[in-house]
């Protein structure tokens, strides 16, 4: 067993407290930094003594929704990634790499271009269908053959399914310029320019998924000892797998519907969490949630400053930060074929 930094329960709780502080710092930072710099006084005034000034409007309509969305999406993607890594016993698992994001994006672009759908409710449904479809497809393709699921096969199947859905998406966009302009920025993954209602529309599902994921942590711990062992201990593994799959799809579908495809958060954070607190799924899930939210918030803040006055889409930021980590994991040899 690798030694982890936070061994005992008090230390873990202390770590959680630090996470909470960082999360708050990230939220506040996200509200006050940007093209229009404000201070936290102004931020508070915007809610207590709203005077209709530009700064107040920016904070209420732009910054606060953006910060909350980044936090919620980050946590959801990270928990989805942690579940995926635990269930597939694959350190490279991520909803981006496994093509689930690509499937959800394709479904939304398809709905927007062909059926002129544009409400968030419809987007969420479409995104859920797309995510479920690609998730099942990748799992199915990765499980083909005699030796069953291996990390290499799953990753390649994910890459193939991603290639398929993204070329479908490009095909639609090429033939439909209007749709292209509408979804371009969204497709790169972004938490900017979203209304708060977009978050409140999907937040109940996210919250539900977080809670169910936490409740499932114990069975997942058992499952991680190996499917045969889990079966021998009397676990209904099919049920666990199906439920975990449903949660992963739900979390990534909600995230994609709000912010477009954002990769690598789900890859990096479970590794960080395991590094900090070991492999107990309960703690991994909680820490992943916090760390995911923190990472996405900071990535978003960073993205505002790199290309001033323009913005780097957050999906690009996470890919640029996460991919080197992916390569590190591969090189370190944590993956067995």
């Amino acid at each position: 067993m690798i030694k982890n930094l936070l061994g005992s329960t008090p230390l873990k709780l202390g770590g959680l407290f630090v996470c909470l502080v960082l999360l708050l710092a990230g939220l506040i930072g996200s509200v006050i930094f940007g093209v229009v710099d404000t201070s936290w006084h102004v931020a508070i005034d915007a809610y207590t003594q709203f005077d209709g000034s530009n700064e107040h409007i920016v904070i209420r309509e732009v910054r606060v929704p953006r910060a909350l969305i980044a936090g919620a999406v980050g946590a959801s993607l990270a928990i989805a990634g942690a579940l995926l890594q635990a269930m597939t016993r694959n350190p490279l698992a991520d909803v981006g790499i496994f093509g689930i994001n690509a499937g959800a994006s394709f479904a939304i672009v398809f709905g927007a271009a062909v059926f002129a759908m544009n409400s968030l409710g419809e987007f969420t449904t479409l995104s859920f269908i797309g995510a479920a479809l690609s998730g099942v497809l990748v799992y199915f393709l990765g499980a083909l053959g005699r030796e069953g699921i291996t990390p290499l096969k799953l990753t390649l199947a994910g890459a193939a399914v991603t290639a398929m859905f993204s070329s479908f998406t490009h095909a639609i966009l090429v033939t439909n310029e209007q749709a292209l302009n509408d979804v371009l920025f969204w497709l790169a993954g972004s938490v900017a320019g979203r209304k708060l209602e977009m978050l409140t529309g999907v937040f109940p599902y996210m919250l539900l998924a977080w809670i169910v994921a936490f409740l499932m942590a114990r069975p997942i711990n058992t499952f991680m000892m190996g499917e045969d062992v889990a079966k021998g201990l009397g676990q209904r593994t099919v049920l666990v797998k199906a439920l975990a799959g449903l949660l992963i799809v739900l979390l990534s579908a909600c995230s994609v519907a709000v912010s477009g495809p954002i990769g690598f958060i789900g890859l990096v954070t479970p590794h960080l969490a395991r590094y900090l607190i070991g492999s107990d799924t309960r703690w991994v899930l909680v820490y992943s949630g916090f760390l995911g939210a923190i990472l996405l918030l900071f990535a978003d803040i960073l993205g505002r400053f790199i290309a001033m006055p323009g913005e780097v889409p957050i999906g690009v930021m996470t890919a640029l930060m996460g991919a080197p980590f992916f390569i590190y994991v591969v090189r370190k040899g944590l993956v067995r074929a």
């Binding site: 890919a319 991919a323 390569i327 591969v330």
Partner: peptide, 13 residues
């Protein structure tokens, strides 16, 4: 392959 998949994501980004 795996490094290729990682690099692919960077390039796509």
């Amino acid at each position: 392959v795996l490094i290729g998949v990682g690099i692919k994501e960077v390039m796509a980004a």
